[in-house]
């Protein structure tokens, strides 16, 4: 069965980069969200068992999404993909429950390494 995968980023180009970086053989059902509010909605609807999440976004940022997931006890695995490369940003998102942090720009090698690290692919 396909895994519901949510890609949450305000940039169209960034969303495309993530799609291009996915392992071709990975069976996923992709939903896109362009800000945190849309992202949380999609997760509540079960469309984000796996979430690739940007941090700097309008409406609600990635931290807000992680806080909401935590507060509502939503079931999903989050990998943050962000240009915010401050060490503190990584610490904060992992404290908020994100599995891993990938620095932008994403590519297939970086993504594959993380997916394999967590036995997700």
């Amino acid at each position: 069965m396909s895994i519901p995968l949510l890609i949450c980023d305000d940039s169209n180009m960034a969303r495309k980069q993530v799609v291009r970086s996915l392992p071709p053989a990975w069976d996923v059902d992709i939903t896109f969200a362009t800000n945190g509010v849309e992202g949380v909605e999609a997760i509540r609807e079960g469309r984000g068992e796996m979430v690739f999440l940007d941090l700097t976004m309008p409406e609600m940022d990635g931290y807000g999404v992680l806080e909401t997931i935590k507060a509502e006890g939503l079931k999903c695995m989050v990998i943050v993909i962000s240009a915010d490369i401050q060490p503190e940003a990584r610490d904060r998102v992992t404290r908020l429950g994100a599995l891993e942090f990938i620095r932008k720009p994403i590519n297939s090698e970086k993504l594959l390494a993380v997916l394999q690290q967590f036995g997700l692919f």
Partner: peptide
């Protein structure tokens, strides 16, 4: 959109530089 994303990466690098030099967390803008 593409340029915005390129700039976002640059914004992140400036944030990281400031954070390291000043020892504080930098709130990244769009």
């Amino acid at each position: 959109d593409c340029l915005q994303e390129i700039c976002n990466v640059a914004v992140g690098q400036v944030g990281d530089t400031l954070a390291r030099k000043l020892g504080v967390f930098v709130t990244l803008p769009i």
